[in-house]
Design a protein around this nucleic acid. Structure first.
Length: 490
RNA sequence: GGCCCCAUGGUCAAGAGGUUAAGACACGGCCCUUUCAAGGCCGUAACGGGGGUUCGAGUCCCCCUGGGGUCACCA
C-alpha cells in the first residue's frame, strides 16, 4: 500500500491570482484527484512586509469559484493545522537550530549594510554575489557572546563546497548542479520567521506532502531543498516542476505589469470553466484529441507524464474559442442567467422578452461582454443610413425594398396570434405569391425593424421579439423614409 | 555574466528511430443561408543551424544559435 498522495497549493496572499498561479493550483488539484489523494491549501505569509488585506479571501474565492475544493486548509482545518505559516512561526526555529547542531547551518550576524556593500562591490566587478561565509569563521565563544548580548542574527544553510547535488523531477528528469554554485541561503530571518526556502521544506515534510508541484522558476533552488531534506534525513517528495506560461511576446507573465489576472478575465466576460479548460491544456495534453473538458473530466484524464517541458504562451484567441465552446454547450437557461446582466445594460424596454434575446445570442456570443453592443436596436430604432437597404447579393434596391415593405405591412398586420411561426408562414407565403427571393423580402424587413446592417438573428426572430405593434411601427418608418428618398431623387 | 531549463506551422500541440509529420486556434476559400453567427467541407503553414550514431533521425549524442528561468533577511 502506497502512501496517500498529498499535494499542496501554497500561495502567498498577494491580493490577486494570476493565471500561472491558477494553473499551478489546478495541476496540484489534478495530481491529487487523479490519484484519489488530498489537496491541501497552505498560506505562505512569512513576508510580513508584503501582507495585503483581504488577500486570503481572494484565494478562497478563486478555489471555490473554480470548483477546486481543498481537503485541508486554514478555513476548514485538518489534521496538520495550522495551515498558515505565520501561525506556525514558532515551529521553524528549533529545526533551524537542529541544523546548526548537525553542522548544516550556522549563525550569521552580518548586517544588511555589510551585505549590501559586498553586493555592490561584486556588481561593480561584474561578478555574481555570493555570501562570503564571513560568520562561518566565528568561534563558539564569539557566537555565544553575540547571542547573549542580543545582536540580531539569521541562520544560514551551510552548503557543501565540493561535489554536486542531483535531484529527480517528474517532468524534467534528472538535474545536477555543482555545489559550489549554491549560496549559503538564509533559513531563518532576523525577525525569527523562516524564509520561504526553509518553511516550504519543513511544512511539506510535516504535512506529509508527497508531490511538490510548482513553477519551473523553482528549479534552480531545488538542489538546496534536497540538501535540507538530506540533512534532516527526511524523505524527498516527488518534484513536479511546471513549464512557465508566458505572454505572446515570450516574456514571463508578471504581477504588476498589468497582465490579466484571473479576476480580470472574469470581468472581461470569460467563463470560469473556459479559463480552467484552457490553462489545463497549456502545458499538458491528453492522450486523446479531446479539447473540451470539464473539471471532472480533467480529474479522470490527467496524468503527470503528459506534462510538457517547454513554456507556452497565453493566447487570447484560443481562450476566446474555448469560451465560445463552453457558451454553446451550456443550457439555454444557464446562458440566459449569465447574459441577463449584460442584456439589461442596453435593453431597458420591458416589452422585450430577454429570454428570447438570449436564445438568438447564445451561438453568437464568444465573451459575455460582447452582448451589450449587439442588442441595442431592440430598445429603440435609431436613425440609420438608408443605403443599408441596398444589398447586392440580396438583390435589393430602394425600389424593391419599398415595395416589399409595403406588401409586408398588411400581411403582418393581419396576424392575430403574433409568434415566430405565424410571422414565418405569412411572410413566406407572401414571398411565394410575389415570386421573389427570400432575401428581397426578408432583408428589407430586417433592415427596417432594426436599422442595423448586422444583427444577431434574422427578420423573423427579431420581429417576433419586437412584438406586432413595434414591428409595424418600424416598418412604417421604413416605408416613409424610402418614399421620401425616392421622391427626392426624382 | 555564472548556473539551470527549453526548442515541431503565427499560437496550443501529437510524435517516445521507419508516419503522406496528427488535431485545435487564428487565417483564407467554398457550402448552407433572410444579415451576422453557428454548422459542414477544403486549403495555406512546422521539425532553428551544423556535425555525428544508424541501413534509416523531428525522435539518440555533441557543438552553435535562439528563447526562458534563477542568482533577496520575496515567495
Amino acid at each position: 500500500m502506497q502512501r496517500q498522495v498529498r499535494t499542496r497549493f501554497a500561495p502567498s496572499p498577494t491580493g490577486y491570482m494570476h493565471v500561472g498561479n491558477l494553473r499551478t493550483a489546478l495541476y496540484e488539484y489534478l495530481v491529487a484527484k487523479s490519484h484519489d489523494g488530498k489537496f491541501i491549501l497552505r498560506i505562505e505569509d512569512t513576508d510580513q512586509e508584503r501582507l495585503v488585506e483581504g488577500a486570503v479571501d481572494v484565494i478562497y474565492n478563486t478555489l471555490k469559484l473554480c470548483g477546486m475544493q481543498h481537503d485541508e486548509g486554514p478555513d476548514i482545518g485538518g489534521p496538520y493545522a495550522p495551515y498558515v505559516q505565520s501561525e506556525r512561526k514558532n515551529l521553524y526555529k528549533p529545526f533551524a537550530e537542529e541544523l546548526v547542531k548537525k553542522g548544516h547551518a550556522y549563525y550569521c550576524f552580518c548586517t544588511r549594510e555589510r551585505l549590501d556593500a559586498l553586493r555592490t562591490e561584486a556588481e561593480a566587478k561584474n561578478q555574481t554575489f555570493m555570501y562570503d561565509r564571513h560568520c562561518l569563521k566565528l568561534s563558539r565563544a564569539e557566537i555565544d557572546e553575540k547571542l547573549k548580548s542580543g545582536v540580531p542574527y539569521v541562520i544560514r544553510q551551510k552548503m557543501p563546497r565540493e561535489g554536486s547535488t542531483t535531484f529527480e523531477d517528474a517532468v524534467y528528469g534528472s538535474i545536477a548542479v555543482e555545489n559550489n554554485m549554491l549560496e549559503d541561503q538564509i533559513l531563518l530571518k532576523s525577525d525569527g520567521l523562516p524564509t520561504y526556502n526553509f518553511a516550504n521544506v519543513i511544512d511539506d515534510h510535516l504535512m506529509d506532502i508527497t508531490h511538490v508541484v510548482r513553477g519551473s522558476e523553482y528549479l534552480s533552488s531545488t538542489p538546496k531543498y534536497n540538501l535540507l531534506y538530506e540533512a534532516f534525513g527526511w524523505e524527498i517528495p516527488v518534484y513536479i516542476h511546471l513549464p512557465l506560461i508566458v505572454k505572446p511576446d515570450g516574456s514571463k507573465i508578471s504581477k504588476r505589469k498589468g497582465d490579466a489576472t484571473f479576476e480580470d478575465l472574469l470581468k472581461m466576460g470569460y467563463l470560469v470553466e473556459a479559463v480552467i479548460n484552457f490553462i489545463a491544456l497549456l502545458g499538458w495534453s491528453p492522450d486523446s484529441n479531446q479539447e473540451i473538458f470539464s473539471l471532472a473530466e480533467l480529474e479522470k484524464a490527467f496524468n503527470i507524464k503528459n506534462i510538457s517541458k517547454s513554456p507556452s504562451s497565453f493566447d487570447m484567441d484560443k481562450l476566446k474559442w474555448f469560451n465560445a465552446q463552453h457558451i454553446r454547450a451550456m443550457s439555454p437557461e444557464r446562458f440566459h442567467d449569465l447574459a441577463l446582466p449584460y442584456l439589461t445594460e442596453s435593453i431597458t424596454n420591458k416589452d422585450i422578452d430577454l429570454r428570447k434575446v438570449s436564445r438568438i445570442l447564445q451561438a453568437r456570443t464568444e465573451v459575455l461582454t460582447d452582448i451589450p453592443s449587439k442588442v441595442g436596436f431592440f430598445d429603440e430604432l435609431c436613425d440609420y443610413d438608408l443605403n443599408i437597404y441596398v444589398h447586392k447579393k440580396m438583390k435589393t434596391t430602394f425600389e424593391n425594398s419599398l415595395s416589399s415593405l409595403k406588401e409586408a405591412l398588411p400581411v403582418l398586420d393581419a396576424i392575430d396570434d403574433w409568434n415566430e411561426t405565424a410571422i414565418h408562414d405569412s411572410l413566406m407565403s407572401l414571398i411565394e405569391r410575389l415570386g421573389i427571393k427570400n432575401g428581397q423580402m426578408l432583408w428589407p424587413v430586417r433592415t427596417a425593424i432594426t436599422g442595423w446592417e448586422v444583427t444577431p438573428g434574422g427578420a423573423l426572430e427579431i420581429a417576433d421579439i419586437l412584438g406586432k405593434t413595434e414591428t409595424i411601427r418600424r416598418i412604417k418608418i421604413g416605408i416613409e423614409r424610402l418614399e421620401n428618398a425616392l421622391s427626392a431623387s426624382r
